[in-house]
């Protein structure tokens, strides 16, 4: 049990996918201008990451390793994740229209999200068990959501401040992201 807690904490804080690993930067900058969108995106990522974590783990374990095709991992994962997202979209539309309406436009965006891909690859590289893979995917997604929402809050404030012209918008966003990431380094010694 203790192991899982350590895993969760390290995934959320220490190895935060956005601020420590610098993956998934496009949604990080793209959907963080407004709190509302950031929250929507965070939920969509949690949902997709867990699903993707599970399925890629299965594909890796029972197909790729079995046939000694590990070198095809990246391309296989891309295909699988893209299909998965499509599948999930269709499924939600039919079965849970309410959820579909909420996550709607964010789902297709995640198809090309490197954070999802990254987490799946990490799961494999770290040789996690099935359960560990699920927990880590979930925790990484939470970390993603946390960082995104924090960042959106900061950016909403920045909107009100006087920023020198050349630094406006994305530039100041990147600077802020850097500072935010520095603060996350403080978690390094935790575990």
């Amino acid at each position: 049990m203790g192991d899982y807690i350590v895993l969760i904490i390290s995934c959320i804080f220490i190895n935060n996918i956005l601020l420590a690993q610098y993956l998934g930067n496009c949604p990080f900058l793209g959907t963080s201008k407004k709190m509302e969108t950031a929250v929507g995106m965070a939920f969509a990522v949690v949902f997709v990451l867990v699903m993707a974590g599970v399925i890629t783990w299965v594909v890796n374990q029972y197909v790729l390793t079995r046939f000694g095709l590990e070198y095809l991992r990246t391309i296989a994962f891309i295909l699988v994740i893209a299909s998965l997202v499509q599948f999930v979209e269709m499924f939600l539309k039919k079965s849970i229209p309410a959820l579909y309406a909420g996550l709607g436009i964010f789902l297709p965006l995640i198809t090309t999200n490197c954070a999802v891909m990254g987490v799946c690859l990490i799961n494999v590289n770290e040789e996690y068990t099935f359960v560990q893979a699920i927990v880590s995917s979930f925790a990484y997604a939470i970390g993603f959501g946390l960082a995104l929402i924090l960042f959106a809050g900061v950016r909403e404030r920045i909107m009100l401040a006087r920023v020198p012209k050349p630094l406006e918008d994305t530039s100041i966003g990147l600077v802020t992201a850097g500072i935010l990431s520095l603060t996350f380094f403080a978690f390094k010694g935790m575990v």
């Binding site: 197909v63 095709l69 295909l79 599948f87 269709m90 499924f91 039919k94």
Partner: peptide
Amino acid sequence: IEALIFMLCIGAICGLALSIASKVFYV
């Protein structure tokens, strides 16, 4: 050859799954 076959297979599976899904989950 293996790689090619594998990619073909996985592509086919994904495609098949999606087309079945689009039939099953057709709204």
